[in-house]
Design a protein around this nucleic acid. Sequence first.
DNA 1: TTAAGTGCAAAGGTTTTGCGAAACT
DNA 2: AGTTTCGCAAAACCTTTGCACTTAA
Lengths: 146, 146
Amino acid sequence: MTNNEDRYEDIVSTMQEAGYRLTPQRLALVHLLAESDQHPTAAQLYAELQQQFPTTSLATVYKTLHVLCELGEVQEMHLGQDEHRYDGSDRTTHPHLICIQCHEVVDAPARLSASLVDEVAVASGYRILTHNVEFFGLCPVCQEST
Amino acid sequence: MTNNEDRYEDIVSTMQEAGYRLTPQRLALVHLLAESDQHPTAAQLYAELQQQFPTTSLATVYKTLHVLCELGEVQEMHLGQDEHRYDGSDRTTHPHLICIQCHEVVDAPARLSASLVDEVAVASGYRILTHNVEFFGLCPVCQEST
DNA sequence: TTAAGTGCAAAGGTTTTGCGAAACT
DNA sequence: AGTTTCGCAAAACCTTTGCACTTAA
């Protein structure tokens, strides 16, 4: 498991190699994504960025996020209408746990077995490139407060 | 596996028992959902409904879909920004296969093992209520045309 | 009869686009 | 120096809401 510093460097390298400019705004955004395991929304990232760059805009945040998604460095998660979150903590496909009460999102300690993916591919005729697993439930904190 | 006619009756019964009125618009929408395994969008459902009810509105479609989701008879899928689809073909949780080129969505011939779900629950402390599995790739048709 | 549902139109909220100004390489 | 990128504002888009009319039970 790579640490956050390495993750930051990885993403920056990828951007550079792909010919994208390393502007301060982008570097700050990448830092936020690599550092946090909070799976933030675009609005949350924007709010944090504003502390360093008071004049930055949501448009810039979205543009950079799209670049990172294209490069495969960030996953865009669609948890519902107006609940899009971005996961830059780990390049590899990994399941998420989502609390239906507080909307916390954390990485799940599991992987889908390769054999299951193969089975589905063979049975369906699809060429499977990636997958997405989400577990919905109550986080430990919200279970208490029920 | 229940057939489409049974599925239609099931959903209608659930609505009735829950005290919802069985209007012609609702029955027609339920019919579309039960009959098709196409995982349609709200707009697609609206377009089909208009053939029978030229004055119907998207608002009515959304309202009915929300009722059905609350009752657990329909699953709302969030595949991306402005790519929400509705699955009324099967009450039980089941994975989906999504073609990244033509955006076709079909049910995947597999289930997540209960033991995997249990493992995640124990390891995380979450009380898991449901889950969502999506495989992304190329459908047989789109593989040909590449 | 009457409370729930329909449908129109307008509002709401997130994401995208256009374009002149700024800045990275 | 030349493009990419920024950031503002406006547009676009889907979804939701308000409200008077209609209708299922």
